[in-house]
């Protein structure tokens, strides 16, 4: 787990918020893997991860001034990333033509690029399962379990009633259990 860097402590934050490119690049370099991981949790397939990650990084850089430093920086980054990704997903969904989406090809990663192969493969297996969960249920599962948002927070973030979010979580968990091989 990374340590949080409150605004008053990490000079990169203020510098980046003031438009210093090097400071911003340094921050993004540090958090890029985390941002891409969260984006991948939310997206079906690998092919659009970097497009969405770029949108999220842009929102982070443009929103740095609003980070008050009263909570872990990574939690703030997670929420900005989730919000941006979900918003962009909806925007693209509205634009998408009637044709259903094609699948993503799975390429084998370079072994040297993966620090802990077991955890990497485990997380790849997880998103392969999530790719079979309906989008709205997946969204609720990721926001709740991966970045630990509460049900009311998710409801507010996605603009749906609390009961709807609970229902999505219940259905999503049932679906995941079935995929894992157990009974709902």
């Amino acid at each position: 787990m990374m340590r949080s860097r409150p605004l008053r402590v990490d000079p990169r934050l203020q510098a980046a918020a003031c438009g210093e490119r090097e400071a911003a690049a340094s921050l993004l370099r540090e958090y890029l893997p985390r941002i891409r991981n969260l984006v991948r949790y939310l997206l079906h397939g690998d092919q659009d991860v970097d497009d969405f990650a770029q949108e999220a990084m842009l929102s982070i850089i443009q929103g740095l001034g609003s980070y008050r430093g009263d909570g872990p920086l990574e939690a703030w980054i997670d929420r900005v990333t989730a919000h941006t990704t979900i918003t962009e997903l909806r925007r693209r969904k509205n634009l998408r033509r009637a044709a259903p989406a094609g699948p993503a090809l799975e390429l084998v990663p370079e072994p040297s690029a993966v620090g802990r192969p077991d955890e990497y493969l485990s997380s790849r297996w997880a998103v392969a399962l999530l790719d079979h969960v309906p989008e709205e249920q997946r969204e609720a599962l990721v926001l709740h379990f991966v970045i630990e948002m509460s049900v009311p927070e998710i409801a507010e973030a996605v603009g749906r009633p609390v009961e709807t979010i609970r229902s999505r979580l219940r259905l999503g968990l049932d679906r995941l259990r079935l995929l894992v091989g157990g009974q709902p």
Partner: peptide, 12 residues
């Protein structure tokens, strides 16, 4: 399946 985020590759 729903593990916390890490700052290294996976699931991306």
């Amino acid at each position: 399946v729903l593990a916390p985020l890490r700052n290294e590759p996976g699931p991306a």
